[in-house]
Amino acid sequence: MKLLLLLLAGLLCTMQVFADDLDEFNLDDLIEEDFDESAEELLRQFEQKNSNKDLERENEIAAQLAAEAIDQQNHILNPVVEIDPCEKMHCGAGRVCQVHGTEAKCVCIPECPEEPEARRHVCTNRNETWLSDCAVYRQRCLCATNAPGCLNPENSHVHIDYYGPCHEHKTCSEEDMKDFPRRMRDWLFNVMRDLAERDELTEHYMQMELEAETNMTRRWANAAVWKWCDLDGDTDRSVSRHELFPIRAPLVSLEQCIAPFLESCDSNKDHRITLIEWGACLELDETDLNERCDDIHRSTPQLLG
């Protein structure tokens, strides 16, 4: 009987392999009153051994899944990102960034899209109509770098006067020019006030506008300083002719004196307008002009409108 019980234990341990053979046995007939404690202990040991193996396997699977989850989480939190050398490269109008090997370099725009519509045309300070602003900026770049395609070396300083085909300018009379600085001061203050009411000024300039509202001696000076700072896009403490475009373009077709007025601001003809020059052409006292620019980067420049 003991031998039969041992054989039964062996069959139970390998029941998955010999399942068909085990079906032929009736355990109720085999396990009778002669099933002693030693045989029961032997079966218990076999069961415990198989249970331990199953537990070890489950632990291995669980550890593997946990490791894979950690790897996936690390990949999400610390992804491998390829850095584009051109991502932080600012090339300016008329130029694009190109990568040569591992080095990023600004080059002139290879070509500009065709703009058949007249409303896309632009008029330059040379009273020449170009098909698009892109064409003007590209031409400036080509001439500034002495590249093939430059039509005239002087085009390195060409800039856009206004959008649309060139038209005949009205003559700015002496009387109009004499009164223009006053009208310009009032206009700058009204624009500054309008932007403040729409909450489109930085906190720094909001304070300047509030001061201008409550202190008449600061009204025109603060407006003049604000607009000069706003035009100084590269914060080099001077305004170039190119940086004057946002104030010149929308007015040139409405105000025949805006072009000669801005030309007069560049008193030393160096193509830059300092704050002192700006105040002088607006007929403001130099002592009222304090450089109070907000150096906080503005992602969207405030245009006159």
Rank of each mutant, 00 (worst) to 15 (best):
210 L>H: 13
103 E>S: 04
113 P>V: 12
167 H>G: 02
166 C>Q: 02
200 E>S: 05
89 M>A: 06
34 D>F: 07
91 C>D: 00
88 K>M: 07
211 E>M: 06
23 D>V: 04
86 C>D: 04
246 P>D: 10
286 E>S: 14
184 M>T: 05
104 A>F: 00
214 T>I: 14
138 R>N: 08
104 A>I: 02
94 G>L: 01
26 N>P: 08
282 L>T: 12
78 N>M: 08
118 A>T: 14
64 Q>D: 12
29 D>M: 07
180 F>N: 08
231 L>T: 13
271 H>K: 09
206 M>T: 09
282 L>H: 13
269 K>L: 10
11 L>N: 02
168 E>L: 14
160 I>G: 02
282 L>I: 11
221 A>E: 10
298 R>M: 09
53 K>F: 12
61 I>H: 00
84 D>R: 10
303 L>D: 13
128 E>S: 06
144 A>R: 11
195 L>G: 01
37 E>C: 06
25 F>C: 09
199 D>W: 06
256 Q>F: 11
271 H>F: 05
219 R>D: 11
124 T>S: 12
264 S>G: 14
113 P>W: 13
270 D>M: 09
183 R>P: 07
164 G>N: 00
97 C>V: 02
248 R>Q: 05
88 K>L: 05
298 R>T: 06
13 C>V: 06
262 L>T: 01
134 C>Q: 06
238 S>R: 14
69 A>L: 03
135 A>C: 04
162 Y>F: 12
280 A>S: 09
177 M>R: 04
89 M>C: 07
200 E>C: 05
288 D>C: 13
94 G>S: 02
227 K>I: 12
107 V>L: 02
68 E>G: 03
236 D>N: 09
204 H>P: 13
93 A>M: 00
58 E>P: 07
263 E>R: 03
180 F>P: 10
92 G>N: 07
143 C>S: 07
265 C>S: 11
199 D>R: 11
252 V>L: 07
161 D>E: 14
156 S>C: 08
108 C>S: 00
50 N>R: 10
42 L>N: 04
47 E>D: 15
